[in-house]
Lab assay of single mutants.
Amino acid sequence: NLYFQGLKYMVPGARVTRGLDWKWRDQDGSPQGEGTVTGELHNGWIDVTWDAGGSNSYRMGAEGKFDLKLAP
């Protein structure tokens, strides 16, 4: 699974964008943008601060869902 392989790169400072299971509307800005991981992966959740200004926790394994992917 590509998403599980990418988890080791989901570290503080990593750049991310919305992924396969995104369901959080425009939390990442409008139009959709990139963000920066600000915390360690914990119980399948990870913290992100978006360039647009907001921050929140997103699923990276929790509930079998992956809200994020590494930015290109």
Rank of each mutant, 00 (worst) to 15 (best):
D28E: 06
R59P: 00
R15N: 01
R15F: 03
Y3H: 15
L41S: 07
G35Y: 02
K69D: 10
L20V: 13
R59N: 01
Y9R: 09
L68D: 00
H42P: 02
K65E: 04
E40Y: 14
G44F: 04
D67Y: 02
K69G: 07
G39Q: 06
D67W: 02
A62V: 06
P12H: 09
G54K: 08
W22A: 04
S57P: 05
D26M: 08
L41H: 07
K8G: 10
V11K: 12
Y9F: 12
G13Y: 06
P31H: 08
Q32D: 10
Y9E: 10
A71Q: 09
A62I: 05
S57L: 10
P12L: 13
D21W: 06
P12I: 14
T36V: 10
A14P: 01
F66D: 01
G61D: 01
R59H: 02
L2V: 13
L20D: 12
R18T: 04
F66Q: 04
N43R: 10
E34M: 14
G29W: 05
A62G: 06
D47M: 14
K8V: 11
T49M: 12
N1W: 09
G54V: 10
G35T: 01
W22E: 04
V16E: 01
P72N: 14
G54I: 11
G39T: 11
G53V: 01
W24D: 07
G64F: 07
G29V: 06
G61A: 00
A71E: 07
N43Q: 10
L41A: 08
R25N: 14
E63S: 09
T38Q: 08
M60I: 05
L68Q: 01
E34R: 13
A52V: 08
R15A: 01
M10C: 09
W45A: 01
L7F: 09
P72L: 11
D28R: 03
E63V: 04
N43D: 11
Q27M: 06
V16N: 00
Q5N: 11
V11H: 09
F66T: 04
V48D: 00
E34Q: 13
Y3K: 12
W50C: 00
P12R: 11
R59W: 02
N56E: 07
W50D: 00
D47F: 14
L68S: 01
G19W: 06
A71N: 07
G6P: 09
G29Q: 06
G44N: 02
A14S: 09
G64P: 00
L68G: 00
G19S: 06
A52T: 11
G61C: 05
S57E: 07
G54S: 09
K8C: 15
K8H: 11
F4K: 11
E63P: 00
T38V: 13
H42M: 11
V48L: 00
R18A: 06
G61K: 02
V37H: 02
T17G: 07
Y9L: 10
A14I: 09
A71V: 14
S55R: 13
K23E: 11
L68R: 00
T36M: 08
S55W: 12
R25T: 12
A14H: 04
T49D: 09
G33D: 07
V37C: 08
G35D: 01
L7M: 13
E34P: 14
G44Q: 02
N43C: 15
G35M: 03
R25K: 14
R15V: 02
M60G: 01
P12D: 08
A52G: 09
D51Q: 04
S55M: 13
G39I: 05
S55I: 11
G54M: 10
G44A: 02
E40V: 13
G53M: 03
E63M: 11
D28A: 05
G6Q: 15
R18Q: 06
E34N: 11
Q32M: 13
N43K: 10
N56I: 04
V37S: 01
A62K: 04
G6L: 15
Y9D: 10
V11R: 10
N43L: 10
L70S: 05
V16Y: 02
S57K: 14
K65F: 08
A52L: 08
S30G: 15
V11P: 05
F66E: 02
K8F: 11
M10L: 13
R15W: 05
N43E: 10
W24L: 05
F66C: 10
Y58K: 01
G19H: 05
I46D: 00
V16W: 03
H42S: 11
D67K: 02
A62N: 07
S55L: 09
S55K: 11
P72R: 13
E40Q: 12
Q5I: 11
K23C: 15
Q5E: 15
T49E: 12
A14W: 03
G29P: 05
E40I: 13
R18V: 06
G35I: 02
G53A: 04
Q32Y: 11
G53K: 03
F4S: 11
T36I: 09
G33M: 08
L2C: 15
T38G: 05
V48N: 00
K65I: 04
V16P: 02
W45C: 05
G64I: 05
G39K: 09
D26G: 07
S55T: 14
R25Q: 14
G29D: 07
D21Y: 05
H42Y: 13
G35Q: 00
